[in-house]
Simulated assay, not measured.
Amino acid sequence: MAHPSLSLFRGSLSTLRSAGEDALNPETVVKLPAPLQTYFDADKAAGTAAPTSAFAPHAVVRDEGRTHVGPDAIAAWWRAAKAQYGHTAEPCEIRQERGLTIVRASVTGRFPGSPALLTFAFRLEDGKIAALEIGA
């Protein structure tokens, strides 16, 4: 049976992409909710542990076609992605849409097409990240 938080993802990014493709200004200061600020601060800090404190205990992350559920799986995903890509993400736009907090970020790292503009779709619950989907 699918995890309840996965219902967030059904058609989310493909629908959301078409809704806000305005040009992004990297000079814009983006004010993020606290758990998202924790996530992106940890992303920028070299050698930082996964920001599992920003995630709810039942949180779900979808990235690169894989699903990671719970703090141990999310920490393993974080470490593996950092080791493989050595990436950092700089938020450049934030908006609320259909109960999600959508952050567009410029992601730079060791991957073809770097830097790339990616979409981070967060669902927050009780001040924590309950779900995150990362895509183009």
Score class of each variant (00 low, 15 high):
Asn25Lys: 04
Ala80Arg: 13
Leu36Glu: 13
Ala59Asp: 01
Lys31Gly: 00
Ala59Cys: 05
Asp43Trp: 13
Ala116Leu: 15
Val60Ser: 01
Ala56Gly: 10
Glu125Asn: 08
Ser53Ile: 01
Ala105Asn: 11
Leu117Ile: 09
Arg66Val: 01
Ala116Cys: 08
Leu117Trp: 08
Ser114Ala: 08
Ser53Met: 05
Tyr39Thr: 06
Gly135Val: 09
Leu8Gln: 05
His3Ala: 01
Gln37Trp: 04
Arg66Ile: 02
Ala81Glu: 11
Thr28Glu: 10
Ala49Cys: 02
Ala89Gly: 14
Val69Arg: 01
His87Pro: 00
Thr38Tyr: 03
Gly47Arg: 06
Pro26Trp: 02
Ser12Arg: 14
Phe55Leu: 02
Val61Ser: 01
Lys31Gln: 10
Arg79Val: 08
Gln96His: 07
Lys82His: 07
Ser18Thr: 14
Ala81Met: 12
Ile102Pro: 02
Ser14Asp: 12
Leu8His: 06
Ile102Phe: 05
Ala2Gly: 00
Asp22Gly: 13
Met1His: 05
Val103His: 06
Arg104Ala: 11
Glu97Val: 08
Gln84Val: 09
Pro112Glu: 06
Gly65Tyr: 12
Ala105Cys: 11
Pro4Asn: 06
Val29Thr: 14
Leu16Thr: 08
Ala76Ser: 04
Ala23Pro: 02
Pro71Gln: 02
Lys44Arg: 15
Leu117Glu: 15
Gly70Arg: 01
Leu124Thr: 07
Arg10Thr: 10
Pro91Glu: 06
Cys92Lys: 06
Ile102Glu: 03
Ala136Tyr: 15
Glu64Asn: 09
Asn25Thr: 06
Ala46Gln: 12
Glu64Thr: 11
Pro51Gln: 10
Glu125Ala: 04
His87Met: 12
Leu124Gly: 05
Ala81Phe: 15
Thr108Cys: 09
Phe40Met: 14
